[in-house]
Amino acid sequence: MGNNEYVIEAENLVKKFGSFVANDNLTFKVEKGEIFGFLGANGAGKTTAIRILCGLLLPTSGKITVAGQNVYTQTEAIKKQIGYMSQRFSLYEDLTINENFRFYGGIYGMSRIKIKEKTAEMLDRLGIESLKNSIVASLPLGIRQKLSFSVAIMHSPQIVFLDEPTGGVDPITRRQFWELIYEAAAKGITVFVTTHYMDEAEYCNRVSIMVDGRIEALDTPRNLKDKFQAKNMDEVFLKLARKAG
């Protein structure tokens, strides 16, 4: 970090649906290897912004590049450079761990050997090589969640988008999960996390807080807490959101 190499650059991002402004002039940059928290209430415009960054939705206006690619014209190139994990859709529960890795690796055009290598490496990291032929549905929730993350970064994307990754997991698993995220970031993978759970925000390098389509604050959790004289991110968020409401 600090070498100012940006993997996401958004300048005056605007997205309108009819007369409704979902994203109102968003300007932010995310550095390579940064863990960037993208927070906001339900309906604040997070999902819209993420879809634009992932190349699933065209913005109305603004200059936006993701992994150096233009979101208007190079969406296919962007998709190769990103990974995605959400709470809802992650692994195929009726396939084995191996089959899931093979499938996702295949999607990103990885060679058989490379897939094998990566699978072995990731299972070794999680300490579950012995489970590689187990059906995903039979695994504990915590392991599944860590596996989803591993699958999302197996093709070494530049950016991985995580949509509320640790909802509902126990506190130990959640920490193991964040350790994985930190390791990925240390390897240079940028992690873009959306959540509306503020304790998740405390783990991020920097967070942006969206209210009603606008980014109302963007800084490190520590600076935000100082600025708003708050004990935790929850209070920061409440102060910002209530001011708007």
Binding site: G40, N42, A44, G168, A241, G245
Partner: peptide
């Protein structure tokens, strides 16, 4: 409160 934002949760 699962899936609900911080303000609504409060």
């Amino acid at each position: 409160t699962t899936g609900v934002d911080a303000v609504s949760r409060r």
